[in-house]
């Protein structure tokens, strides 16, 4: 299991996860607009996949030894 409370640069991994999730959500929403307007689903697929990965990682609770 990843230690989401390990420090990476300025912040903990958990904080980076929140930031990346926000970016992923934005990509997915741009993707939805593109699909509804008849464009390519590529952005939606990338954004949605990244969102699922971030959500799954952020849900990991702190380790018992933290």
């Amino acid at each position: 299991m990843i230690d989401m409370d390990r420090k990476l640069g300025r912040w903990r991994l958990r904080v980076w996860g929140l930031v990346i999730n926000l970016v992923a959500n934005a990509i997915a929403l741009f993707g939805i607009v593109a699909v509804v307007e008849g464009g390519s689903p590529a952005l939606l697929i990338i954004g949605a996949t990244l969102t699922v990965v971030c959500v799954a990682a952020l849900a990991i609770p702190p380790r018992s030894d933290s």
Binding site: V33, L58, P61
Partner: peptide, 26 residues
Amino acid sequence: SRSYAWNLGIVLGITLMNAIAIVYVM
């Protein structure tokens, strides 16, 4: 927090709030 499911519920809620902020800007 010691629960994956509890955290998952919270993070999904946060993701929805992210969407609200992003849609507002868009």
